[in-house]
């Protein structure tokens, strides 16, 4: 399925879904309230059947005060890719967990929590991944300072 047809099909699933500009593949953007239902449909409905959650990461848009969560989906049956983005505010950043849809999301969400501080509601085991449990701060945020380890840019 080519990019435009795919985007149209996906945007038809959920009312608040819009096209995400400036991406090199089919990309849609949803608000956080519609994220989980959209993902469920993307996984389950047939011409889509995105069964492989390739990656989940986040981008810190500090000047706009939001985190942009990025999900990269792939379907092994049909061979198409999709990028789903979702913006959440930087303060009190909480998003729903997708670990019951794709088990690998459990692990990927822990990494994003560890490095960005985005909380996942409903996550079975939300702990830091790479850093120690008592670490203060979230390193991949743009404003992160650590006088011992980081030189000022």
């Amino acid at each position: 399925m080519d990019t435009e047809a795919l985007e149209k099909l996906v945007m038809g699933l959920e009312a608040q879904c819009r096209k995400r500009e400036q991406a090199d593949r089919a990309a849609v953007d949803v608000p956080v309230s519609a994220l989980e239902p959209l993902m469920r449909k993307l996984r389950n409905e047939d011409p889509l059947s995105f069964d492989l959650l390739l990656d989940h990461t986040a981008i810190d848009h500090i000047h706009e005060g939001l985190f942009e969560m990025v999900y990269l989906l792939y379907s092994t049956r049909h061979g198409h890719h999709l990028m789903v983005t979702c913006e959440i505010p930087r303060m009190d950043s909480i998003a729903p967990t997708l670990s019951d849809l794709w088990p690998i999301a459990h692990w990927q969400e822990r990494e994003v929590f560890d490095l960005f501080g985005i909380g996942y509601d409903g996550h079975p085991d939300l702990r830091r991944l790479f850093l120690e449990d008592g670490w203060k701060g979230y390193p991949l945020r743009k404003g992160y300072t650590d006088p011992d380890m980081l030189e000022p840019a």
């Binding site: 909480i94 729903p96 929590f113 909380g119 996942y120 509601d121 996550h123 085991d125 939300l126 702990r127 449990d133 008592g134």
Partner: peptide
């Protein structure tokens, strides 16, 4: 939505 953060020691 709320989030509970756990630690490794709790699991052990």
């Amino acid at each position: 939505m709320s989030v509970t953060v756990r630690t490794l020691d709790e699991l052990l």
